[in-house]
Design a protein around this nucleic acid. Structure first.
Ligand code: SF4
Ligand code: SF4
Lengths: 145, 145
DNA sequence: ATATTATAGACTCTTAATATCTATAATTCA
DNA sequence: TGAATTATAGATATTAAGAGTCTATAATAT
């Protein structure tokens, strides 16, 4: 059980957009360079974020992606759900009623995780992460203090 | 992101063994019938549980699988780890140091989930689940109260 | 008009999960 | 001892999902 790479890219992209701020849009080309990922692939991820209502896109010259007004209240969970969907970690096809402990316990555990992910908003995060994205590409040595 | 079916089978099998109790071993054939899964596949899962030290196996006639002495303290997390391994939900290859919020937040969320899964032991569960496995196969209508 | 940028769909590639098959080892029992 | 029973292990096949590419189309600015 792992988070997909798409989620990884989405989290990093949103955090980066938060640090940059919503003033000028950034093209997918630039973002793809930053994270060393194919532009067409990243564009699919960004489109999901657009559809989830947390990013705005603009075609044409000087176009690109920028955060929407409400960006500060977007949580990690929002981003993860936008990419992975909201399906539960555990879904059995049967229904053994309230007697069923298995499903109940796993779902409670998942709920605890989600509560934490929901409490982490981009607004708070951006303040703490301004130093993270200083260089050109994301490399392994630039952030080590 | 989903738990694997193997984990699903493992949780159900362990819960079933808990309800039955460790007195007489059960063959994989019987368990596979119960959960409507191929015996050879289930046997691989059971072997993992044996190696994790939570189940005992015996070859030969009247052999099979039974819980070990300490079974009451085995947690959901133990079972999940036995099947899925203990790797983190999120592993980036880079290391941007303490500045990195992404990894830290996701790992904290995972820790909350694990804390809950660790708190649920088979001993407690077995008491509450005795009615669940009454019939032959697990079907969708037998448990609905 | 042309260049630029996002969007969408079809498509391929890769990997992991799922499942099967067969052979072997351990144990019981007659 | 020998046959039946049961777990273990390895090789292999099948399926499904994730990751990534390619190309065509739509929207926008200059
Ligand atoms: S015990 Fe719960 S999780 Fe398992 S099959 Fe029944 S309803 Fe599903
Ligand atoms: S910001 Fe954190 S999670 Fe992202 S690449 Fe750097 S160390 Fe990894």
């Amino acid at each position: 059980m792992k988070y997909s790479k798409a989620t990884d890219y989405a989290l990093h992209t949103m955090l980066f957009l938060s640090v940059v701020g919503p003033d000028k849009p950034l093209g997918v080309q630039l973002l793809a360079d930053k994270f060393q990922v194919s532009p067409t692939y990243l564009s699919k991820i960004l489109t999901k974020l657009v559809k989830a209502g947390m990013v705005e896109s603009a075609s044409g010259a000087n176009g690109g992606y920028r955060l929407k007004r409400n960006w500060e209240s977007v949580s990690f969970l929002d981003i993860i759900h936008a990419i992975e969907g909201t399906a539960s970690l555990f879904d059995c096809s049967l229904d053994h009623g309230p007697e069923c402990q298995v499903q109940q316990i796993v779902l409670e555990a998942e709920a605890k995780m989600e509560t934490h992910l929901r409490s982490q908003t981009l607004g708070e995060l951006a303040k703490r992460s301004s130093l993270l994205f200083k260089g050109g590409q994301m490399s392994s040595d630039e952030g080590t203090v």
